[in-house]
Amino acid sequence: MLTYTPGETLAHRLDPRGKLAVQFSFAIAIFAGPAVPWLPAMLALAVGCLLLAGLSVWRALRTYWVVLLVLSLGPVLGAVTLGPPWIQPERGLDSLRSVARVVPVLFVSAAFVHSTPVRETRAAIQRTVPGRFGQLLGVGVALTFRFIPVVREDLRRIREAVLARGGERRPLRDRAGRITTLALARSMARADRLSVALQARCFAWNPTLPRLSFAPVDYAVLALAAGLALSPLL
């Protein structure tokens, strides 16, 4: 599983806003631009991002192997037809051109995920999305991240309890309904307690925002993002 890993690489030190901008404009460049001639250059850039974050290409491939498997079905199944002529290579080629664009995007996002803690993305959201909506999104992302392990533990216990009471012999409908209901009830009870705790600590619309600051290198990252976003117009 690929998640944030503390480190000292250049990618780790960059401002999250620049990194987010590069990710999105990279996607714009690759999906809106002339795919084939640019593809090798974009792939090279993506591999560069991986290396800057201290990740190997192999690690990125292994992380996303299920997606890559689905992508590889594109050209294979795309070339097959249900009647004569049975195989249409040019259709497979069309699909290959399409799915190949996703691979560099996956690499860039692997580099981001590996080098950026969730709380920095949260800070970027709160500092970029204006007003109350940005505040709710930022705090919401931080809270969701915090509660995932808690809910995972709840679900594990529920599953064990249902199994222990012979749940396996019950019909699917009954079993799935029981697990879902218990998980929802426990989650909503936690929501009620969280709600009280947030209020007790003066949860406000206008808090001090998390620290973020641009270093000179971050402006270079932003320039790269702008260049990528505009590249389809060339």
């Binding site: 915090r146 936690r190 307690r193 705790a197 600590r201 003066c202 206008n206 808090p207 001090t208």
Partner: peptide, 29 residues
Amino acid sequence: GMVFQSPRDQFVAATVGADVAFGPENLGL
């Protein structure tokens, strides 16, 4: 200041420092 029964439901951040900072942040310090 309030401390509730189950600590797990009153933490608002994944790490210790970020959680303790939540109240003072809301005060705009």
